[in-house]
Amino acid sequence: MRKLLMPFALIATMAYSGEQFAMSDADRAMYAEMLENNPADIYVESGGEIFEEKLGGEEALAKFLGVKVDELPKYIAGFPRYIKKLGNVVGIDQVLQAMQVEQGKKMTKLKSEDMFSMLAYVKSLANDEQFTIDINADEHIKASYDLGKKTFETPRGGRGLSCLSCHSKDIVGMVLRTQPLPDLGKSGSGATWPAYRMTKSSLRTLQRRFQGCMKNALLKVIPIGSKEMVGLEVYVSTLAQENKKAIAIPGLKR
């Protein structure tokens, strides 16, 4: 039930009528139905199974991170974060890869469906938690945040656009082709991905969603897991954090 909370706020922003907007009445009906039964639940469940079978589940994760199992939710709500033994600010998916390597197993690719599912499962352990990202905790997370913010604001690509061109405060709610521009903080983007994306009929992660905007706006698509992508995730997650958005995975998106 709790995962329904977030999408209701979204429905309010999406429930425009008239054909100027992308969601038809039929789409809206389907969306309402999916709220009852998010198709991403299956992915999250299978992610949990793979995580348990291949990686040893929560116990193994807590041990790897050096925290107690019952501290996991709060700790996960602080990702992306600096992990000393990995030498970088990393996402949950990269931690899962490192666990695999430590256990002598093959790394699951960051952009694979299995990884998206596992990531969704692990992040959902922090459901209902507020983000606990402290960008002043150490110089590494500070640098990652700064790189993320810079990446967000840097215009590039065939049309000379930056993320900020479309996601700055002064144009939130305006309409780009038939899409109202979302406020990434108020819509709690950082807290609601991984999500089921109706238009793609699959589970997508936050970094995968960033790639979608890059592709659409003709910015060169940068790889998942790069320092810039992790930085963007830090930056966008802190926007949700400032807006006190609780983590609610999996989200449900147009």
Partner: peptide
């Protein structure tokens, strides 16, 4: 444990060159 260098135990592809070439 020390033998497996954990700082290389995950993928972190480089994006800086891609971005550099793509700047406005």
């Amino acid at each position: 444990l020390n033998a497996t260098d954990m700082t290389k135990a995950y993928s972190m592809p480089d994006a800086s060159k891609l971005i550099e070439k793509d700047l406005l």
